[in-house]
Design a protein around this nucleic acid. Structure first.
Length: 461
RNA sequence: GGUCGGGUGGCCGAGAGGCGAGGCAAGGGACUGCAAAUCCCUCUACACGGGUUCAAAUCCCGUCCCGACCUCCA
């Protein structure tokens, strides 16, 4: 069974064939670290993390590059506002992104290059582009790519150059065409700069990704990913720069859709963003990940607090089954992937269909508990755990290990066992008022008591 | 103006010519001292108007509505 993936360039789902058998190279546009991450940012990270985990599970050796753009106009602006050095601001928010990724169990990339660490590669790239006539340095310190000379420009977004609305800041006197874009920007007073043959300056947005993709993945690689809003101009311009020097660049383009609120894209300019750190006050990281990963990556995910809570409750049911299964089987489930799940994931990562297989496993597994069918419990628990592992939501993953020490849990278990013994004797003498007082008391402390065929069990809400 | 998504039941969310994904909520039932948890059953749908077809949520034409990008964006 082979993996089929969508490609933004062809607008079709097709069989994924890596350039080198058994290996996959991926470049994903990471954050421009100018503010704390909102849930749209991490949705993108989660989507591509699921892709990566699925490729690894499918037997590929995956090289996964996700960059950090740590220099751009917005970062300089924000640094002024926050009255700190641009580099301090960039690192501050880079850490915020890293914390968010960690909280959501997004695997660290194979390498995470920063734009400012690749100025040399950018200068080399511009050098080549100027030499072969694709780019020009008008003499003021800027370097532009001459888009009119490109044959395939805008093929990813399928637009015509002449149909584009002129840029709002198109009073550029140095550009040959208003649509030419800056590879490099001359330093203004008080701005950071690096020396180049064309004068001191700093990278324009776009150039860093071409340079870094080339540095780590070579002239061509399998998959380039990012948010849908990067198709134009960012990815078009990456293609333009890279193809103009003769690189074949990305073989396939994957773009994730947004998180929306009331149908509108979450964005800083609308002020409707939901910070990851805020959301994590109401749900755990694993629950937020379960929620963000639940929709198909190419579909908009309409956020609502209710939907998030629903997802969290839904996830707790699965966790509850896994912990009961572990108790009854006497061993942690062994992750296993079933054919239905595989089929779903191989069809352009159809996570919603994959979730339906988990629901079925859950139903059958709970039924097996009722029937005391250990083999059935085990089978379904194994398959659920296997699926959760791919989705990055395995509650037994050490990444989600609870911070409360096991000593504490043991002590608590002992205390609750005492209370439950009292309750059991009260029930035996049919003193239900007394037994309910104990249960209600524990419940008020956030401890839920369930009476099962194997006796009472407790859990913390 | 150009390019591109979308409108599915009370809600979320798949599907893309035929057998109503799945989840949540709701109603009924089983289990329970009562609960909780769990299981079983039931209900509600494809924006609108035409067309193609034996068959349309799915394809075509038109209309309405929502959203995104057009050099800030995951």
């Amino acid at each position: 069974m082979s993996l089929n993936l969508y490609d933004t360039a062809t607008r079709e789902v097709s069989e994924f064939k890596p350039l080198v058998a058994g290996q996959v190279s991926i470049y994903v546009c990471g954050a421009t670290v100018q503010a704390a991450p909102h849930i749209g940012h991490v949705r993108s990270a989660v989507n591509f993390d699921i892709l990566r985990r699925w490729l690894v599970k499918s037997g590929y050796d995956v090289t996964f590059i996700r960059n950090v753009t740590d220099i751009d106009d917005k970062i300089l602006q924000k640094a002024m506002v926050e009255k700190m050095s641009w580099w301090a601001l960039a690192l501050k928010y880079e850490r915020a992104f890293t914390d968010a990724y960690t909280a959501l169990n997004v695997l660290p990339p194979t390498y995470e290059p920063r734009a400012t660490g690749h100025i040399t590669q950018m200068i080399e790239l511009m050098d080549q582009l100027i030499e072969n006539g694709a780019a020009y340095a008008p003499g003021n310190g800027d370097v532009y790519l001459e888009v009119r000379k490109l044959k395939r420009y805008l093929s990813l977004s399928r637009q015509n150059l002449d149909d584009l609305q002129p840029a709002s800041d198109s009073d550029e006197t140095y550009k040959k065409d208003v649509r030419d874009f800056a590879l490099w920007k001359a330093a203004k007073p008080d701005e950071p700069s690096w020396p180049t043959p064309w004068g001191p300056g700093r990278p324009g947005w776009h150039l860093e990704c071409s340079a870094m993709a080339h540095a780590y993945l070579g002239e061509t690689f399998d998959i380039h990913g990012g948010g849908l809003d990067l198709v134009f101009p960012h990815h078009e311009n990456e293609i333009a720069q890279s193809e103009a020097v003769g690189y074949r660049f990305a073989q396939r383009w994957l773009h994730n859709a947004w998180v929306t609120q009331s149908g509108e894209k979450m964005s800083k300019s609308l002020g409707n963003t939901l910070q990851v750190q805020e959301i994590l006050k109401s749900v755990r990281g694993i629950e937020l990940r379960w929620y963000l990963g639940s929709a198909h990556y190419r579909s908009m995910l309409e956020y609502s607090p209710e939907a998030l809570q629903e997802a969290a409750v839904n996830f707790k049911r699965i966790e509850n089954f896994l912990s009961r299964a572990t108790e009854l089987v006497g061993a942690k489930p062994t992750p296993r992937i079933n054919t239905e799940f595989t089929k779903a994931m191989n069809e352009d990562l159809a996570v919603p269909a994959a979730l339906a297989t988990i629901s079925e496993n859950l139903r059958l597994g709970n039924q097996a508990i009722t029937d005391n069918d250990i083999a059935g419990i085990s089978k379904n628990a194994d398959e659920i755990r296997g699926a959760l592992e791919i989705l990055g939501c395995d509650p037994l993953d050490p990444a989600f290990a609870s911070s409360s020490g096991s000593d504490l849990t043991e002590a608590l278990d002992g205390v609750i066992a005492l209370a439950l013994a009292e309750r059991a004797s009260a029930r035996e003498r049919k003193d239900f008022a007394a037994s309910d007082t104990i249960r209600d008391g524990l419940s008020a402390l956030g401890i839920t008591i369930e009476d099962t065929a194997q006796g009472p069990r407790w859990s913390i809400n």
